Amino acid sequence: MKTLPKLVAISVLALLAIRADAKSNFDIIANLDNGPGNVTVTDNGRIIMSLHQFYQPKFTVVEYKDNTIVPFPNREMVDADSKAAMKLDSVLGIRSADGIVWMLDNGMRSRVTPKLVGWDIKADKLHQVIMLPSPIAPKDAFVNDFTVDTRHNIIVISDPAGGTNAGLIVVNLKTGKVRRVLEGDSSVIPENVDLIIDKVPIQIKDNSGKLNRPHIGVNPITEDLNNEWVYFGPMHGLSLYRIKADDLANEYMDDNILASHVERYSDKPISDGISIDKDNNIYLGELAENAIGVITTDRKYRRLSQCPRLSWVDSFSFGPNGDLFAVVNRLHQSAMLNGGVLSAKPPFYLLKIHALSSGLPGR
């Protein structure tokens, strides 16, 4: 196995997991040279991350191992047929469950059909590939994050798409059938709120050179450990919603009826990925304030930590022993979201957060 020393720089502080500051609620586990996308931690403690496509990484998925990172899956162990089936282009969403690491490839770098790829880490072989063709994933799709429900045998994907056509995608893992639901529902489309970080607004430069402030639809998504409720909401939105997993798994339920079953759960700040513990506390990054917060079971949001280093906390995942991991990637300083100007510089971070309770590895 070949390591990639140039992709990661581990400081003495990171090696010792020294607390970022005396009053913080997190530890810096690693300083990374490449901007991470999402993170998942398997039930045996393997830390696997996507590298964010906005930073044009050489590899799209890597494993943090022995204080460095290596490509995942190990290219030397992938046979020719698996390589042909996988062809990972631009993975962001990544989750693990029951020995399978699921990777959501949005295909945007090479403009190829999005797909969901499952890799069996016990057998070290390809488990399943499920394509997400149009109109399930429309031309402006940005399939981003997802949750794995092993009770209903489904995966639910968030797709902010173009905003007004945002929706959820439900994948039946047994049959491979895929459905797009709740498209354009008020629970998934963005609200008219701008994201401003350190007094600088998020801006995208269009083909004419004009700067626009994007409003991004449904992105954060997770599910409680009993596989009862799926929680989700627009990234640019101040509300978190939920719906019964039974309803999402029901392939015969009319979309209008499904929409009537969505309930507003709580307030939330503008946020990216989320996770949940066994007591149903929901963790998220408060992007505008360089902070990490939690929505507790009284449905109230409160801040856990605020620090300049918490500069776009993107994704969370519980690991074994109750540990909660997260990544910091400063996406607002990527050229994509900074008006075409790349200002983000390493290090980016892999964090361990002091959660209120333990959770399920991979979620």
Rank of each mutant, 00 (worst) to 15 (best):
N38Q: 13
E286N: 15
L51R: 11
K174E: 15
E263C: 00
D206H: 10
S275V: 09
D79W: 06
P190I: 09
I353C: 08
V171R: 02
N153K: 15
P57Y: 13
P269M: 14
Y265K: 00
Q128F: 00
I216T: 14
I157A: 05
V39M: 12
I100N: 00
S158H: 02
V171H: 01
Q333D: 11
G45Q: 07
D27M: 09
L16E: 13
F348D: 02
V170R: 06
D43R: 12
S82H: 04
I130C: 06
D159M: 02
V129Q: 05
P320L: 03
I202H: 00
S305Q: 06
P347G: 10
D105Q: 02
D198V: 04
V178A: 08
P346Q: 09
S266H: 06
K210Y: 04
V91W: 02
H236N: 15
N212A: 10
G37T: 01
V341C: 01
S317W: 03
L342M: 13
P234S: 07
D145K: 07
K199M: 11
W119V: 03
D81S: 13
K87R: 15
P160Y: 01
N212F: 14
P133W: 09
G167I: 07
L356R: 01
P73M: 12
A344R: 08
N165I: 15
I243R: 05
E289L: 14
H236W: 01
P234G: 06
Q203K: 14
K177G: 00
I10F: 11
N38Y: 10
Y241D: 00
M336R: 14
D255T: 04
D66M: 10
L351G: 09
H127A: 10
I189S: 05
A9Y: 14
Y64W: 10
V78W: 01
L350Y: 02
G362H: 03
F54Y: 14
F232G: 03
V193W: 09
L324E: 10
D98I: 05
K2F: 14
F325D: 01
